[in-house]
Simulated assay, not measured.
Amino acid sequence: MTQNLFEEEPLPYVAPELMAPGAVLLRGFAGAVDAALLEAVAQVIAAAPLRHLVTPGGYTMTVAMSNCGALGWTSSRSGYRYTSTDPLSGQPWPPMPGCFADLALRAAAEAGFNDFRPDACLINRYEPGARLSLHQDRDESDLSAPIVSVSLGLPAVFLFGGTRRTDRPTRYQLVHGDVAVWGGPSRLAYHGVAPLAEGEHPRLGRQRINLTFRCAA
């Protein structure tokens, strides 16, 4: 079903919504700074263009991605890894914009994780039909730090499960400006994104942008 969102405005932030121990939704938390975030996204992908990575199993991801910060996450037939340079250009990843780092720090603190200092931000672009299968974020050296995930553009169904692949995930509707944070006992929770539905966002058109902040080193 096509979603007509031309009248959409970011929801006002109210209070954390508990998903699991150590995991919360901060609905509308990024709404007040969305214009700055989107401008920064455009600058990053101009320097490090979005690309569809190939997994070690040979699958081409439907989500297009880039990175900024000291480290960037990448994938190929040889495995998943963090690198200090963009494999396409051989140049360092673009620096993390100040508005990115500030939002990530504030969101982590709001969720109960103080002094979060991410060194990697994954920028994922979803177009209708794109999805992300259930997985754990476990390529980072510091698993004591949380994951901070920001949603911009079209709404998405976020799947958040337990620490076992067989745990049935709960479905959460994420809209423009929502932020999810998980760490502590939920740090290795399986999570993913259901296929993105057709729609039109007033600022981003037929796409969703996700910013995922991590402490990788």
Rank of each mutant, 00 (worst) to 15 (best):
residue 3 Q to L: 15
residue 3 Q to T: 12
residue 7 E to F: 14
residue 8 E to S: 09
residue 8 E to M: 13
residue 9 E to P: 00
residue 10 P to K: 09
residue 12 P to M: 12
residue 16 P to K: 14
residue 16 P to L: 15
residue 17 E to A: 14
residue 17 E to G: 10
residue 20 A to L: 02
residue 20 A to R: 14
residue 20 A to Y: 11
residue 20 A to D: 13
residue 23 A to E: 07
residue 25 L to G: 08
residue 27 R to W: 06
residue 28 G to Q: 12
residue 29 F to W: 07
residue 32 A to G: 13
residue 32 A to D: 15
residue 33 V to E: 15
residue 33 V to I: 15
residue 36 A to T: 06
residue 37 L to F: 09
residue 39 E to V: 08
residue 40 A to V: 04
residue 43 Q to K: 15
residue 44 V to S: 14
residue 44 V to D: 04
residue 44 V to C: 09
residue 45 I to V: 14
residue 46 A to N: 04
residue 46 A to G: 09
residue 48 A to L: 07
residue 48 A to G: 05
residue 49 P to V: 09
residue 52 H to R: 15
residue 53 L to Y: 07
residue 55 T to V: 04
residue 56 P to C: 10
residue 61 M to W: 03
residue 62 T to G: 11
residue 65 M to W: 01
residue 65 M to N: 13
residue 66 S to Q: 08
residue 69 G to C: 10
residue 71 L to F: 14
residue 71 L to V: 05
residue 71 L to H: 07
residue 73 W to Y: 13
residue 73 W to N: 01
residue 75 S to V: 03
residue 76 S to W: 03
residue 76 S to A: 15
residue 78 S to W: 07
residue 78 S to F: 08
residue 79 G to R: 02
residue 81 R to G: 03
residue 84 S to L: 12
residue 89 S to K: 11
residue 89 S to W: 10
residue 92 P to K: 08
residue 93 W to Q: 01
residue 94 P to Q: 13
residue 96 M to Q: 14
residue 96 M to K: 07
residue 99 C to Y: 05
residue 100 F to V: 08
residue 101 A to Q: 09
residue 101 A to Y: 00
residue 102 D to V: 13
residue 103 L to C: 01
residue 103 L to A: 02
residue 104 A to E: 01
residue 106 R to W: 02
residue 106 R to E: 10
residue 107 A to P: 00
residue 107 A to F: 05
residue 107 A to R: 01
residue 108 A to V: 01
residue 113 F to P: 00
residue 113 F to Q: 01
residue 114 N to H: 15
residue 116 F to Q: 00
residue 125 R to Y: 05
residue 126 Y to S: 02
residue 128 P to F: 06
residue 129 G to T: 09
residue 131 R to A: 12
residue 132 L to A: 00
residue 132 L to C: 02
residue 133 S to M: 14
residue 134 L to I: 04
residue 135 H to T: 01
residue 136 Q to S: 09
residue 138 R to F: 13
residue 140 E to V: 03
residue 143 L to I: 05
residue 143 L to C: 02
residue 144 S to G: 13
residue 147 I to G: 02
residue 148 V to S: 01
residue 151 S to W: 02
residue 151 S to C: 13
residue 152 L to A: 04
residue 154 L to D: 08
residue 155 P to S: 12
residue 156 A to W: 02
residue 159 L to Y: 02
residue 160 F to V: 03
residue 161 G to S: 06
residue 161 G to I: 01
residue 166 T to F: 06
residue 169 P to V: 05
residue 170 T to K: 13
residue 170 T to A: 15
residue 172 Y to T: 06
residue 173 Q to N: 07
residue 173 Q to M: 13
residue 174 L to V: 14
residue 180 A to D: 07
residue 180 A to L: 11
residue 181 V to L: 08
residue 185 P to T: 08
residue 186 S to D: 11
residue 189 A to W: 03
residue 189 A to G: 10
residue 190 Y to D: 00
residue 190 Y to W: 11
residue 191 H to M: 09
residue 193 V to L: 08
residue 193 V to M: 11
residue 194 A to I: 05
residue 195 P to M: 12
residue 198 E to Y: 13
residue 198 E to W: 10
residue 198 E to H: 06
residue 198 E to K: 10
residue 199 G to A: 11
residue 201 H to N: 13
residue 203 R to P: 01
residue 203 R to V: 10
residue 205 G to T: 04
residue 206 R to Y: 02
residue 208 R to L: 06
residue 208 R to A: 03
residue 208 R to T: 05
residue 211 L to G: 03
residue 215 C to F: 12
residue 215 C to M: 14
residue 217 A to C: 10
